[in-house]
Design a protein around this nucleic acid. Structure first.
Lengths: 186, 186
DNA sequence: TTGGTTGGTTATTGATCAATCACTTTCTTG
DNA sequence: CAAGAAAGTGATTGATCAATAACCAACCAA
């Protein structure tokens, strides 16, 4: 058996199963990587944040690269889940999708920062993870736009992604003036 | 005297003055940093590409960070010079600016990659250099758009920058499908 | 009670590199 | 040509870390 789910189920108290530990480590890793960057962040910092020893990380993750990829996947999964949950009529779908993303940037800023970092890392495994994440997000949004019957879905999605990227960059650079200007008023 | 410009001026043969060396090093640094990323790239790789010893780099640059910032400044300067050179009537200005940038991506891809990398580096000096570069580019383009009498210049500039960012990211990720879809046809 | 499984630790090491130090060589000019 | 400046090198080092090795402890089941 893997977990501590014994006869007298002691659930709720977040037992130290390896699955829980993995989650804790990932949560810490997202923050540490976002704050210091992939190369400057150390596995010791992640461990410290979780309250475990540095080597224990390598019992649950093959190496630092895999840890980063897992953290990145987590970030993309949240974005995808958020966008999946969006429901709105065609006329409101774009604005609603933007609203959901803006909320995500507030509630999980580190995961957004992680994304931007990942764009610049020259590492095959990481690049593949980013490619996959970006492809999934694009496809998902496009599917929604098409299903809603929005005109020129490809262009709309592309514009949405472009503004999203600029938004991300404005965030990591701490340049609010760079944020996209929508101008929906006419 | 600093250079070898003696009486019998032996110009043209690219003498090994420290100014020339600085330029050579920067040119190599742009390529090496773009290829391996700031942290994986080593000063030894840069030196090898120039054909000098690794320690000599530190005679011309205080440290690795300063070398990167200088390389980054160079990249931004080229972008700015390119945009400054743009002249077109209001109706064509946006397209012409796009064209110039697309050409830059072809002729100096490493400098574009360097930019994207720089977004993700958590280092104060580097972040400041990126901020300055982005601010200058935005202001310059906005100035041009305003001077040409384009309507909603702020929004147009923002959209232009957003698509530029998406374009950069499509490039570094090697995801051509992510490239912006303009759709000027009606 | 014993032995296997799960969850953990301490200590260490092997590589990697930026950066410095102590020199040498090559100009050039008075 | 002497001598100082400019250009450049070889050797080394001091830190930093990912990753491994080797070992410990708590628990449970047969």
């Amino acid at each position: 058996m893997t977990s501590g789910q014994s006869g007298t189920t002691r659930l709720k108290t977040a037992e130290a199963t390896s699955v829980n530990r993995r989650e804790q480590i990932l949560e810490a890793a997202v923050v540490v990587f976002a704050e210091h960057g992939y190369f400057r962040a150390t596995t010791a910092q992640v461990a410290e944040k979780v309250g475990i020893s540095q080597p224990y990380i390598f019992k649950l993750f093959k190496n630092k690269e895999e840890l980063f990829v897992a953290a990145l996947d987590r970030a993309f999964e949240r974005i995808i889940r958020s966008f999946q949950s969006v429901t709105a009529p065609a006329g409101e779908l774009l604005n609603e999708t933007i609203r959901v993303y803006e909320q995500l940037m507030e509630t999980h800023p580190s995961e957004i920062v992680l994304q931007v970092q990942a764009f610049g890392i020259r590492d095959e495994a990481i690049r593949q993870a980013v490619q996959k994440g970006m492809q999934e997000v694009t496809s998902l949004v496009e599917g929604k736009f098409i299903a809603a019957g929005i005109a020129n879905p490809e262009v709309e999605v592309s514009t949405f992604m472009a503004n999203g990227m600029l938004c991300n960059i404005a965030m990591v650079l701490e340049m609010p003036s760079l944020k996209p200007k929508h101008l929906k008023l006419e």
